[in-house]
């Protein structure tokens, strides 16, 4: 974990999805960094995201390339576009990993999954 992302990881442990947001242009962004990628201001604060968004794109993994990753294939690799604008990678859960069922732009919402005392991950499921 990088120091500039600490508020993000701290937030996840408390069940909050925190996003950096520019105090000057007002745009949220992701991943965390010390200056705004939109207007290049260094006045960056944090907001709590709604946790709502859409599935911008996805892949269905029929095998794992990363031996450290424990979930059995097939599983869904997801690119989420948050309501606040930024995109982030995650997994889409609670849905059949089938391209006939999973659709780009479907509404999704965050669920927090505790992995260890240190790490909680933001996963996403179809919005109910």
């Amino acid at each position: 974990m990088t120091p500039e992302a600490k508020p993000y990881w701290d937030g996840l442990r408390e069940g909050k999805l925190m996003l950096p947001k520019c105090d000057d242009c007002g745009k949220a962004f992701f991943y965390p960094r010390i200056a705004c990628p939109h207007c290049h201001s260094r006045a960056v604060g944090w907001i709590e995201a709604s946790g709502k968004g859409k599935l911008y794109s996805f892949q269905i993994a029929h095998r794992a390339l990363n031996p450290a990753f424990k979930i059995e294939p097939p599983y869904i690799l997801a690119m989420i576009e948050l309501e606040e604008g930024p995109r982030m990678m995650s997994n889409l859960i609670d849905i059949e990993p089938d391209p006939a069922v999973v659709k780009c732009d479907m509404a999704v919402e965050v669920v927090f999954e505790k992995q260890t005392d240190e790490v909680t991950l933001p996963l996403f499921r179809p919005a109910g």
Partner: peptide, 16 residues
Amino acid sequence: FEMPYGFGGAPTYFGM
């Protein structure tokens, strides 16, 4: 921001 979800290797990104 990517590997915890099973990303890793070009085929898991270019397919997006």
